[in-house]
Design a protein around this nucleic acid. Structure first.
Lengths: 207, 207
DNA sequence: TTTTAATTTAAACAAGCGTTTAAATTATTT
DNA sequence: AAATAATTTAAACGCTTGTTTAAATTAAAA
């Protein structure tokens, strides 16, 4: 029986993980097959289980990694000690770049998340992180000063995320409707770097 | 070989379709099994193929129906001959209600769409419908009049859709982070009915 | 260099998949 | 009431799935 070892071949493990990431992200858990992953990695199927015990365990490592990248970066940006407006521009800029480089992560995470039921959020204590985030405090303070309208931070955060993420998730739709090729879509995303912060700030400052 | 018939039992077909919708929407195509659907419908597995020929064909009928509901309603609203600002409020109001009643449709359509490659869009000629929509014309006219800033309609449409759809797709996340129950989430969505149009209009009118 | 451990593979495994067959049942027509 | 057609089912089909076994190969330790 293949027990946990101290010494492993990291090259092989990386090859398998890269292949698994590619296949899982495009096909989902049920859509992916171990033989597909093995072929993509150029190894025997049995070797996959030798290194990762099971398809499910291999999937989990990919899922957690993607999940962390998906939310980790935005949570980190929310907590930076930058003035509110600067921060919003920065979040949009950085997260757009992240999404352009990792376009498959959002739909993968969101689609898989409908099955797993928030266990990862509890593990990462996302609730407290958001509630006590510097961003939340900033919105309250600025509202008290009267420089922006009072607002539930959750609405701002999910407006930001919706505006950022939806175009990537719906990319084939946008590309088709707008007749955009690879470069055209990139241009579209670059335009959003200006539009999204302007829209959020226009709302916060209005009235 | 079971050929297409003229007379069928519509009760059975509906039972199977309802069950298939429930299972496909929550599990996706690969995640769903014909035995699961049959059990949910309370019929034998063979009966499913008797009425729908194959799992794939049954899926397609569910997918096309969902796809049509997902985009059809918004395209219809875009083409209504209502003043711009009224229309935006109306789109948000109606589409929010649609999403509250059909929360599984967006993630289902988006997740499945990453496999099918726009064939349905071409079939429905979505591109021309959007380009020649009354909404697009309105944005141009108002910009010429100077009542709003000039803007690429695609950005407005996808900002609207992102703001509307993302919270539903990420509902478990919102519910967890905001400690919201069923009623709390509904309240959150009701609040967005005000916030989203205000945000879009604040952007269009600013500068 | 011999021995031992780690890695990789080919082949087989049981279980579950979508589908089909052929018989039983129900509804319709004659 | 008898005959025919439509519907439903139990059971089996062939195939693919994830996993395991046992042998072969490579690397490390003695």
């Amino acid at each position: 029986m293949p027990r946990k070892k101290e010494v492993v071949n990291p090259d092989t493990e990386n090859k398998i993980k890269e292949a698994a990431k590619k296949v899982f992200l495009s096909q989902g858990y049920e859509g992916a097959t171990v033989r597909q992953i093995a072929q993509e990695a150029g190894v025997n199927v049995a070797l996959m289980n030798y290194h990762f015990q099971s398809k499910e365990q291999l999937f989990k490592s990919i899922y957690m990694e993607s999940f962390g990248a998906f939310f980790g970066s935005i949570v980190r940006l929310l907590n930076e000690e930058t003035p509110l407006e600067v921060k919003i521009w920065k979040i949009v800029d950085r997260y757009t770049d992240f999404l352009i480089e990792n376009p498959m992560i959002p739909i993968f995470v969101l689609a898989e998340h409908r099955k797993d039921g928030n266990s990862l959020f509890k593990e990462l204590n996302v609730r407290e992180v958001v509630k006590t985030s510097y961003f939340t405090k900033q919105l309250q303070e600025e509202a008290e000063k009267g420089t922006i309208r009072p607002v539930n931070p959750l609405h701002v955060i999910f407006s930001l995320m919706g505006n950022l993420i939806f175009p990537v998730v719906a990319r084939p739709i946008i590309s088709y409707v707008g007749s955009l090729d690879e470069a055209g879509f990139r241009q579209f995303m670059e335009e959003r770097k200006k539009i999204i912060p302007e829209m959020i700030m226009a709302y916060l400052k209005s009235r």
